[in-house]
């Protein structure tokens, strides 16, 4: 009985524990803001930020920006991820392709993709293609590198087993190689999502006329610190949401693996 109640309490403690720090911080923040220790223009109180967020939602301004940003993020991720995945298949499966392409790609990887911004603006101006291009390059590398790594670290014994049992090359790819690479591919996806948001923020802040980045930069000009904070918190939420979704995906796709149960 006692052991049961401890286990029960443990479950609640485990659910609550990750929230302690954020909630504590917000409480502190509220107390400081209300007491007037921090000037309003530097840091409005959490309640004010929430009000600003509510207001922006009701007017439809924030949902519109959110929609624009998400669209950019998802399309960029799909394009960059697909290119990365196809290159990874090519270079992971065929030795000669790896020999020809990999060292060049590794060289390009060492250029921080945000350093390309001036060049990208020269090429594409400040329109949609520029932002898309940056996101595509940003997500390409984590997907590419992790997929290649996953494919190349497939257990050779399993491939031999598949060949002995007469699997065709397609069957080998889909029943042996790709499932074996999947944990690595998903790690790549999580990295890519992080980079996707980062790139989006920077791209929208540099030059844009919609999106969350634009919303915050615009608010800065009007000294609306609360709106800036809404934007920042929104990024945090979106990032966390993307990560939670991938983690759930990981747990489901890798349920055969004791490490993910």
């Amino acid at each position: 009985m006692a052991a049961e109640s401890i286990a029960y309490r443990n479950r609640w403690i485990r659910l609550a524990a990750p929230w302690l720090v954020p909630i504590g911080l917000i409480l502190f923040w509220q107390i400081f803001a209300v007491s007037g220790l921090i000037p309003h223009r530097i840091l409005p109180s959490p309640v004010e930020v929430m009000q600003a967020g509510f207001h922006l939602t009701v007017t439809g301004e924030m949902p519109a920006h959110l929609w624009e940003s998400s669209q950019r993020a998802v399309i960029g991720l799909l394009i960059g991820g697909t290119i990365g995945f196809v290159f990874a298949l090519l270079n992971g499966l065929f030795g000669p392709a790896h020999l020809v392409f990999d060292s060049s790609l590794q060289m390009l990887r060492n250029i921080p993709h945000l350093a390309m911004i001036p060049l990208v603006i020269l090429w594409f101006g400040i329109g949609e293609p520029a932002k898309m291009f940056l996101i595509v390059i940003g997500v390409f590398f984590p997907i590419y590198i992790n997929t290649v790594h996953g494919i190349r670290s497939t257990d050779p014994k399993l491939i031999e087993m598949g060949r002995i049992y007469g699997l065709t090359p397609w069957e080998l790819l889909f029943t042996v190689v790709l499932p074996s690479a999947l944990p690595s591919i998903l790690v790549g996806l999580r990295y890519a999502l992080g980079i996707m948001w980062l790139t989006l923020i920077v791209a929208e802040t540099v030059a844009c006329d919609n999106g969350i980045g634009y919303m915050t930069m615009n608010a800065r000009e009007f000294l609306q610190t609360d709106v800036v904070l809404v934007g920042i918190l929104l990024y945090a939420l979106l990032g966390k949401l993307a990560d939670t979704v991938t983690q759930a995906l990981e747990r489901w796709l890798l349920r055969w693996n004791p490490a993910y149960r």
Binding site: L158, V176, W256
Partner: peptide
């Protein structure tokens, strides 16, 4: 090693 596919 039995060489079973762990995901099946």
């Amino acid at each position: 090693d039995a060489a079973l596919l762990p995901w099946k």
